[in-house]
Design a protein around this nucleic acid. Sequence first.
DNA 1: CACGTCGTTCGACGAGTGTCGAACCACACG
DNA 2: CGTGTGGTTCGACACTCGTCGAACGACGTG
Lengths: 103, 103
Amino acid sequence: MELFEPETADLDLTAVLQALGDPIRLRIVRELADCEGERTCGTFELGVSKATRSHHFKVLREAGVTRTRPEGTHRHVRLRREDLDARFPGLLDAVLARTPAAR
Amino acid sequence: MELFEPETADLDLTAVLQALGDPIRLRIVRELADCEGERTCGTFELGVSKATRSHHFKVLREAGVTRTRPEGTHRHVRLRREDLDARFPGLLDAVLARTPAAR
DNA sequence: CACGTCGTTCGACGAGTGTCGAACCACACG
DNA sequence: CGTGTGGTTCGACACTCGTCGAACGACGTG
């Protein structure tokens, strides 16, 4: 298990958009943004199996959206907010914003 | 052929992100943003067949990213910039921005 | 009318994706 | 050491997606 995470300069816009273009992953990113820090994978109630959850976290990590820090048997996940803002300014804010007409 | 286009209020973020998360479609959107108006589908050099091109334009239209106006045998396509800005402020700008480290 | 052009639609195909259970690994704790 | 827990990996499966050639439809033009 090599835990691949792309360099900030290597972040690919289509890969990021693709990663964010899934309801479950978008939810993960939103919760991650709300908590403003780290969370372990297990604390997400996503309504899918462990295997599927692991898959989504992998997609997010390999797209460069999240950073994963292993610690013991847990994995602490956090948003790569600064990196994303540096590479694609405004993107994360736009995606996370409460959409005006959605309420 | 009913030419479905979602209402502005019905724009779905994941659908939009999914539509933008493809290199060819992202290119179309970029060129569409550059030309600041309408273009016919045929004026895009995408390196794919007519069928594939038609498919991509359909995805963009059904996600609400573009508006299509038929005129004779042609189809005039334009970006739904105002609608997207109203629904997801900043998203389009972020996606279209020249990425800092990309140069 | 005949022909060419622009674009859609229709299979078809291969590649990728989301999903799961089951097996597995690594660690923590009795 | 045995057991449990948090996560990953491994098929497997169904489904979607991007792609194409071919056929088709609609419109303009000669």
